[in-house]
Write a protein that binds this DNA or RNA. Sequence first.
DNA 1: TATTGTTATACTCTATAACTATA
DNA 2: TATAGTTATAGAGTATAACAATA
Lengths: 162, 162
Amino acid sequence: MANRKASGGDTTPAGNLDEARLHGVIGYQIAQASIATLGVFHRLVGEPLGLRPVEFTILVLIKENPGGTAARLARALAVTAPNIKLWLERLEGRMLIRREASASDRRTQHIHVTEEGRQIAESATQRLIEGERLAFSHLSNGERAILIELLHKVARKRDETS
Amino acid sequence: MANRKASGGDTTPAGNLDEARLHGVIGYQIAQASIATLGVFHRLVGEPLGLRPVEFTILVLIKENPGGTAARLARALAVTAPNIKLWLERLEGRMLIRREASASDRRTQHIHVTEEGRQIAESATQRLIEGERLAFSHLSNGERAILIELLHKVARKRDETS
DNA sequence: TATTGTTATACTCTATAACTATA
DNA sequence: TATAGTTATAGAGTATAACAATA
């Protein structure tokens, strides 16, 4: 931290290293920003609730899409089928979700959250929203809303191209 | 793949209160958006140039901060010391960077890019900027600029809290 | 006493291929 | 023929602990 600039200086997220044209690469800025958001997640959800980012996302998506299938989750999160199966097994082992055989298609299972899973999912989401609001309080409410909408637009693109 | 808007597709059920709440989690939107940007990276840089995201970032940061040390890179990218050492060894093995012993501090090494490393770093950056402009053409130039600045603000936060 | 770089090691996560049973 | 879920396995990536050299 020897050469840290004073307040108002042009410090960069990457440990005060110069970024130059890298600054204009969206993917790079997203990766750098994710270091901050993952820090918030780990502190407020990962550590206290024992949830990894993937587990949290899967749990919430199941809660919001009750009766969905594993294959649909895998596509939504861009993970492989064996991968999603492992995470579902862990969540099921912790009694946070349950899987029911489908009546119409005997290949698939309909996934739901348990009551405990619902509570943890809602608690985690609430912690994240409040935690991010506090950690990123140097962004106004409007800026956070704009950021989310623009990120949403970027994320939407992958469905159309890939 | 799934490009459905309604009719029981991958859209979340309407009237679900918590769907809006997950929508407001910055870290979630960042993770979703990174799937799209990583796709662009893999197609335009990872595949043709044989560079992983970490390798690209390390290479560019070295190019723009010549003479830096491994420890500084590790802090900048939030990776551990043994980890950065492995990536530096691979880049050095490909003759993209070189390490020189320091005269003042005999513990450290000053890292520079080779001529080939410089060319690849610049080519990769150029490909990414143009590729993202094309892939995310549904965002205006202004929107992309705003997105980058807001991500920059989020990323900058991690230095102050952690 | 703290820091840089390194080694050794184990663990987590992920991807691929192959299999089954359904459709 | 295609899809959902599963199994087995190998590989990639990452973290931790311990160490030596230097500040």
